[in-house]
Amino acid sequence: MKNAETGAAVEMELEGENTIDEVIESAATFWNKDMGAYVLRKGKKVLRGGSSLSDSGIRAEDVLELIPDPEGG
């Protein structure tokens, strides 16, 4: 897992039934992110929150990136 804002990376042990929502929240907690909206991307694709890792086609060694979703105006 990469932190788009800092470039930091961490290995996460996850199960196929873990949802993208759960992964986002775990990563945001690990990096002490401010409360806010975040999305998880794999390559050029935003992953759907309610989907499981297996349904999203995520496999071991895949690199995911946590990016803030800017909501100010």
């Binding site: 806010g36 909206a37 975040y38 800017p70 100010g72 105006g73």
Partner: peptide, 28 residues
């Protein structure tokens, strides 16, 4: 949408494609 040096633009073009909500999750 913006936050400091970050920004995003999304276009919803009904009835085709994704809408804004399609890209949101539990953090939103």
């Amino acid at each position: 949408g913006m936050d400091g040096f970050l920004g995003k633009v999304m276009v919803s073009h009904p009835p085709e494609g994704a809408c804004l909500q399609c890209g949101m999750n539990r953090t939103h």
